[in-house]
Design a protein around this nucleic acid. Structure first.
Lengths: 310, 310
DNA sequence: TCGGCATATTTGTCCTAGACAAGTTGTTGA
DNA sequence: TCAACAACTTGTCTAGGACAAATATGCCGA
């Protein structure tokens, strides 16, 4: 068993830094050229070796960029200013939320898996699925995201939280076993959007409303969505966009998909990622809030009633 | 089943090809330079646009490389020879349940969700979890991947198949509810590796062996893995790598992680992605096959017995 | 004062082409 | 038959240069 020597780490090669920070090799090199940071050492072969401290700072800068800051500014700042930014101005931090949500956020922070799982089950039984999703889960996810960007909890806690929710929804849904129901709705995301939780929440809401969701998982290319819609004979396709997804990309993707989908197949788009889309897209139903999903559903049903035979 | 028609898009940019095939941009460019394949068009700006057919072939070549073939040979072959290679020598896996697997593959191709789900449950009950995973699920996943590379089924079928497996494992695991057991094993993947199925299979095997898995989900940065291991007090960390993950990156990541993890915490690495790693890494247990997982487990338990008090 | 539009800057990704180390294969000699 | 050495293969790194998409800034008219 090797004794761990602290100083023994000369530095990380560029590939490791890419993996750890999510900044591409090209970006790392071009930052060094343009801004003079980072300043990696070189090994005998002239290849970059990044000091662990700089890697840490790069990760911090990446986090701030995800909050909307621009690299040009961030890279000019020194250590202290960076930390100050990290603490302070996370936009809508002052959500005057319930104490209950705060209590739950605390369970997430302390990785109290058992308590969290129990609380979830209790609250779902108490409120019913629809209200549970809208009043608890969705706000809590937003809360956790905000806390992460404020560096109050790490990726580890966030992953654990996601896993608990996924487990909860999947087991609950498995027991509800929808073998029928209308409309039939295909659930997926476009390539580049990996978040599955939104889909699971929608699936849960659809099931309790006696619709028939077909969960396809994330990241389906557009032509495959079209093929799936046809083969599974769905009445609607529902896409989910997280806030990380570029609104322009989302709008473009929705237009592309709308064009290739049969006219009588509805197209719904939900999630935080569609909120910034101002202009309505022809033939696409934007569902920024879960409440709107019920409107879509009702809309389809009344349309169906007016021309019943298919 | 008719071969699916390739859509008339101009071509994929290099970044998309990297994502789809798992071949790095550098590799794609150097192959073009050295072997004259692939031969992408260029857009108005001189940037590469890869024909969908060539992307498919690149993915096929990658698959064959994971089986041990060398790129120099593969890239010199024509379409027919490549397909022949794809069929033949992998049949070394001529598991006796061959016809059965083919029958199941057919269920995947025809999106017969109900029949597939039923067959899964029946077979799991019949064989028990361990044999079910090793004899059915793992080969079937390989089969589906091969069928995809032969263009016999699309992403849609593959996603649907994955969703069924995920549902199956998650519901089964939820009911087994491990609140105790040893060793405690943290399950996750490095950043860049998104596949969750491997983790779920390992979790299932660990639970039936009376270990205590902690499922963290995919894409955890190294320092967060270290923090999670410490906070959750695990005895081992188990990473999963799919065949798309670059072996060099995997090895580098494992070395990085090994260095930061406490010496008494074991590190296991499994999945198709570790098969091409020849050189053993100091202090890391490579688990290319599920069978080897049991050896790791037994190894830990005998080591623990020899110094019981902790 | 404010919204809309044209211009300027910022920024990530792509390009070429050369180099080299680690791994694999092939050959020679004991 | 097997070890040692040479030759080849192959992925990843290097260096700037270039450009388009995203974002910021300035300007004009209402």
């Amino acid at each position: 068993m090797p004794t761990r020597t602290i100083q023994a780490i000369p530095g990380l090669p560029i590939a490791s830094v890419e993996r750890e920070t999510g900044l591409s090799k090209d970006t790392l090199r071009v930052w060094e050229r343009r801004y003079g940071f980072p300043t990696p050492e070189r090994d005998a072969n002239g290849e970059r070796l990044y000091a662990p401290l700089q890697v840490r700072r790069l990760a911090q800068i990446k986090r701030l960029m995800d909050r909307g800051h621009r690299p040009g500014k961030l890279l000019a700042l020194d250590e202290a200013a960076l930390l100050a930014l990290d603490e302070l101005p996370s936009a809508a931090q002052a959500t005057p939320g319930d104490e209950q949500l705060d209590a739950w956020l605390n369970l997430v922070k302390t990785h109290d898996s058992e308590a969290l799982q129990q609380a979830f089950h209790r609250e779902m039984a108490k409120r019913g699925m629809a209200r549970f999703v809208q009043d608890i889960v969705a706000p809590l996810i937003a809360r956790v995201g905000a806390a992460w960007s404020r560096n109050e909890l790490g990726i580890f806690e966030e992953h654990l939280f996601s896993q608990h929710l996924e487990k909860l929804f999947r087991t609950t849904l498995a027991n509800m076993a929808p073998q029928t129901g209308h409309p039939r709705v295909l659930l997926t995301t476009l390539s580049g959007e990996e978040h599955t939780l939104g889909l699971l929440m929608v699936e849960a809401l659809l099931v309790v409303e006696d619709a028939y969701p077909v969960l396809l998982g994330p990241q389906t290319p557009i032509d495959e969505i079209v093929r799936a819609a046809s083969l599974k004979q769905v009445d609607a396709v529902c896409l989910s966009f997280s806030s990380a997804y570029s609104p322009a990309l989302a709008a473009q993707g929705l237009r592309d998909l709308r064009q290739r989908l049969p006219g009588d197949t509805q197209l719904w788009a939900g999630g935080y990622g569609v909120k910034p889309i101002r202009k309505p897209i022809d033939g696409v139903c934007l569902v920024p809030e879960f409440q709107d999903l019920f409107d879509c559903l009702a809309g389809w049903r009344s349309a169906k009633d007016s021309k019943p035979a298919v």
